[in-house]
Amino acid sequence: MIRYLMQRIVTMAMTLAAVSVLVFAIIQLPPGDYLTSYIAEIQAQGEQVTADKIQFLREEYGLDKPVWEQYLVWVTGLVQGDLGYSFEYNQPVADVVGERMPLTLILNAATVIFIYLVSFPIGIYSATHQYSWSDHGLSFLGFLGLATPNFLLALILLYLANVWFGTSVGGLMAPEYIDAPWSLAKLGSVLAHLWVPVVVIGTAGTAGMIRRLRANLLDELNRQYVVTARAKGLPERRILFKYPLRMALNPFIADLGSILPQIVSGSVIISAVMSLPTTGPMLLSSLRSQDMYLAGSFLMFLAMLTVVGMFVSDILLAVLDPRIRLGVKGAR
């Protein structure tokens, strides 16, 4: 187990390193840098920029160094918890970001929990009541949930909330808590607002999860050992929970790896639509204004969220399934 753990940690570290190179390359892609657009803006306002000042700014921001050196500075900063400097806000990125990262984390974690809580009972119900009316109905709902893009769902929800309640459902907390320090009351307010985006982001994931759980459980339920158990007169409930459910659970956890990127993607766009105080809207604006370190930290944070999440799911899977941690060939 420890060997497996070490292996996975090394892989994760290498993945994160590769991702950091990728992210840095992407934020370097736009022609010019923040300074060129900044200088253009100042000149457009009719002010003069002297060559000295440009040179000073360039050195100050470290934009005069070669690309690889800029990368090294950025990465060592990241490792030490220094996220770099936001050009647009003239502040360290950490100060600009503030609560956004923990809130993003809460939002994504809540969505994962929501997906599991909802899809688990429904999946079991669908599989044990195959081809019943409720099964067909749930399958249809699932298809619709998979096909409707989540930001459209958010728009519809915004519209309906406006028509029915006359209020906006945007935001993640009541206005009076926005700049307040964390307290129980604030946490309560966040939780009360959280359910709308969580449902919107989680719909597609839940639908997919129900489908997979249903299919897996159906495969198991048709196995001979189930027939044997039934022939021996075991009660249905015990037959279901003793083995087939455990087998069907395996992919359930393995799928965390595929739904996590989906959830993180979803939370970005939903946050932009519903103007949630998470990383989404600020990532968009920083991308538009070429505020490269701010955008870079957001991208890195989102990527880290999924990579670490997958790491956790792999560990859980190894705990659950001895074939994986012992490296047996033919394990799923």
């Binding site: 991702v19 990728l22 992407i26 736009p30 990127p261 970005v268 990527a303």
Partner: peptide, 19 residues
């Protein structure tokens, strides 16, 4: 690596890079 990354933020970043 590519499959473990959230797609939308990367798409956003890449299309922001289009001149």
């Amino acid at each position: 690596i590519l499959r473990s990354l959230p797609e939308l933020p990367l798409w956003l970043a890449l299309s922001a890079a289009l001149p």
